[in-house]
Nucleic acid binder design. Structure first.
Lengths: 163, 163
DNA sequence: GAGCTTGAGTTGCAACTAAAAACTTTTCCT
DNA sequence: AGGAAAAGTTTTTAGTTGCAACTCAAGCTC
């Protein structure tokens, strides 16, 4: 990553804080993972994750509030509530996998199970990758932070974008 | 995501908890982001992030301890310490970007700045993508969790992998 | 239909973690 | 020598996490 530097000092403009408001909390990602794995009910999360009841309660509420999970009463048993991933929640899969793959690469080698596979050939997926605007995957060494006004401007001495 | 279900109940085998041990803490990702943006010194992080000194101190220590940042004395000024991303730290970029993109997609629309671009054409990067074993990017709808022993086994009734 | 069980939560309290502000140390600058 | 900068610690206060017990409605059992 030769020159992945930032030209100015205003780092505030970015979606990260938004994401972290929900997903930065202690159990959020573990709950999300359980959701992806077909866990849907309060008591299931509880025994699956080993989280405290009150914490689970407030996390689920927050995930619902942020539209990551949906809270629906179960037809047929009026005690039961089903927590289901929304599309917004499912869109967290790349983030979850990226994190997981990193943990796997550098953590103590755990034999992962279940394994996420490509439906087509049932072979394990590859790494989560950064793509260019045209879909090529790009290496982290080929990245650069530039000022908003300089997007698309290719190195012509000290030229500046106009407009 | 048609049948992204899990066959069994042992969700423990996965790199996610490993990753969350460091990156699940409150300021870790924000510190990481600042690092990627060329922030290297204690007082810089402090004013950039608006974090409390003691918290920053302990987060930096933890990130160093986990090999995500390196702590090196600066030649020429013996007061200064430089915190620098390691390769392990840089490998968190996909996770960071995935999170950030998600936040951007669903959060209040912020004009992001600086923008991460492809060095080649200086155009903004595309989405972080899940890839298949051969490098194709795959959609979340084409994914499936299967038991470790069933990897590569293509739907042949109730067949089982041997070995 | 009385009594037990299940599901999805609250409540109360102890232990831990984060935040703000002041203080400390060492080094540099003049 | 005196002041300021860099990178922390310490102290105090406020907020979170975690455990255990409790609630309360709905089902199940005989």
């Amino acid at each position: 990553m030769g020159e992945l530097r930032e030209p100015l000092r205003d780092l505030t403009e970015c979606g990260l804080p938004q994401a972290l408001e929900v997903m930065g909390e202690r159990w959020s990602f573990m709950i999300l993972r359980a959701s992806f794995n077909g866990v849907h009910h309060f008591e299931e999360f509880l025994s699956e994750l080993g989280i405290a009841r009150n914490i689970l309660s407030s996390r689920l509420a927050k995930l619902v509030e942020h539209g990551i999970l949906e809270r629906l009463p179960v037809a047929g048993d009026r005690r039961k509530i089903e927590y289901r991933l929304t599309d917004k929640g499912m869109d967290l899969l790349p983030a979850l996998l990226a994190l997981r793959q990193w943990g796997q690469k550098y953590g103590a080698q755990v034999e992962e199970n279940p394994v996420l596979v490509d439906e087509r050939d049932r072979l394990p997926i590859g790494p989560v990758a950064i793509t260019a605007h045209d879909g090529r995957t790009i290496d982290k060494h080929d990245l650069l932070f530039v000022h908003r006004d300089m997007v698309g401007v290719v190195e012509l001495g000290a030229s500046r974008a106009t407009g």
